[in-house]
Design a protein around this nucleic acid. Sequence first.
DNA 1: TCAAGTTTGGAAAGCGCTTTCCAATATATG
DNA 2: CATATATTGGAAAGCGCTTTCCAAACTTGA
Lengths: 341, 341
Amino acid sequence: MPVKLTEVARHAGVSLATASRVLNGSSRTPAAGIAERVKSAAEELGYVANAQAQALARSTTGLVGLVVHDIADPYFSAIAHGVQEAALTSHHQVLLAGTDIAGDGGSPGDAELAAVNAFISYRTDAIILAASRLLEEDPRLIKALSQYITNGGRVVTLGASAIPEARVLTVANREGAAALVAALVTQGIRRFVILAGPHERNTARVRVEGFLQGLAGEKIEPLAVVHGAFTSKGGHDATLEYMDSLGDSAAVPAILTHDAGSPVCILAANDVMALGAMTALRSRGLAIPADVQVAGFDDIPTLRDHSPGLTTYSLPLEEMGRLAAEMALTPAGKQSHSVTG
Amino acid sequence: MPVKLTEVARHAGVSLATASRVLNGSSRTPAAGIAERVKSAAEELGYVANAQAQALARSTTGLVGLVVHDIADPYFSAIAHGVQEAALTSHHQVLLAGTDIAGDGGSPGDAELAAVNAFISYRTDAIILAASRLLEEDPRLIKALSQYITNGGRVVTLGASAIPEARVLTVANREGAAALVAALVTQGIRRFVILAGPHERNTARVRVEGFLQGLAGEKIEPLAVVHGAFTSKGGHDATLEYMDSLGDSAAVPAILTHDAGSPVCILAANDVMALGAMTALRSRGLAIPADVQVAGFDDIPTLRDHSPGLTTYSLPLEEMGRLAAEMALTPAGKQSHSVTG
DNA sequence: TCAAGTTTGGAAAGCGCTTTCCAATATATG
DNA sequence: CATATATTGGAAAGCGCTTTCCAAACTTGA
């Protein structure tokens, strides 16, 4: 139904080949006069090239797939923003998929596999995996991506993965976590509760390892390591559970306050968990940072408007998205890259 | 390079037509035995259908385009999340574009036009316009979308637009704003400063109209109406400017505190502006809500973890995204729909 | 002026699928 | 058992482009 190139060509009195050459960047450029005729015919008819047909003929789609966990999470949306930016400069469109959305049922990780398969089906020029990699990658995922790469597709992951040949944007999760602990200790804090994410998520696990490593360096044992979902609610619920585990849930657990001599700091595996933790603490009447301190990881943009400010390890999220997209869209580009806070 | 249907067919000893029929939902289903052969051949070879070729042959792409302003803004990312959800259930992929990203230069609105043109080029089955419509829509945009709709594409806008034939998801911006004012007045507040967004953005303007309408109903004149960008920074800066305009910038403007008898409430056109305003107020040493109150609009999910809580008009953002996508993806579906908070 | 070289436009062969016909079987009916 | 009727698989014509060849039309130089 839309007007096609054939019609433009006929309208301009030239062949299909010529029309194609003037309208879409070909190496051959028809004479100025002809070109003008074709252009105005296209303009007049409101011609818009069919990218699907072009993709088929050129065997490159101008699409880049981005897999995030939850686009509504500030961490991922900041990255997505950066990806979009870089995609635009390379004239690519972004295909977005979120793995937090229940697929047609199935085990966790199925959503990611489905997303990747969809992207492969659309023959995206590259796929960016921003959702945190799993400790045990799904072999089907690995197989699909390997084949994709073999066929000329590019894959970049944020953080290491078990996917051979994928380019990786290394993030200073472990080092950052350790550094954060060191900074907090310098501030005089020596009692920590670690709010860990799901163990199978590499990002979450590695950060906790970094925390523990940092603490070990200072000869400190954490008061506890509690696990929760990698979300605000996860941080909130885990914090509540922890407090309850401390004793009478009606009263403010004494251990959390200064009573014991030094302030306690809740060290969350990421900012949204930290924010959830703060909400939980407040709901129990604890003041932040007077009674309890809280630290996070990521420096999500929305922190800007939080008060009191969260102590956090700052990651250049948007820049990370941009870098990942650049790595993905540069045919012979960098195979790896790393970012620090 | 990837394995194609022809190869699967050859491998299974059947024709191309048969292979196509068993692998991709056709109305005709080959005999069970044959089907099995084809399926295992496909599995064995790791066949993934080329969606581009299918799109060309079927003249439907399974793509839906979503235009937002800034995906990193919680408002848009919540909507995007909803869109994704609905898209998944209709087996569609979402193509995302943000209009806040500088295109190849040009006037404001060009980014949206570029995004829409890209979507049209990819022949998305539908386009969802979530970025707030402009008071003066770009005629080129209108023309492109009209043609798109004529050609069978579906367009849905969040909030009314000047695009004929577009389906619209009406949002109770005006009514909600008025209702919010009424609720605040009931709480005893009678002095308001309106933090308006850019006048040319319909969403922003209509909300302010609703605020003014609500105030008029109570026979109240706002202390002031100040404009700023529709972002956290916009709310922040506008608030600071307003305070400065009140006099000695070093001191806390007396007019803002209870001194004058009743508390002042800053009424922002959306939540992110309100959050920015709160940050600005705090930076001047004002306590919220003790000294000044702040109200927003949208009820973005991230508000959950803000303290003190923001008074706001709650919009079902995610649901809105879902509805918009449903309207967009249902061929003969609802032409319009509306949501209230 | 003519051979050799250079542009330039067009015909046609794909790109990887879907789907319409057709022909060939298989099944049902008398 | 012959005929009518379903089923079933396959050949081939597209879907809307790009791009490789070709041939025709120009240049150029001697």
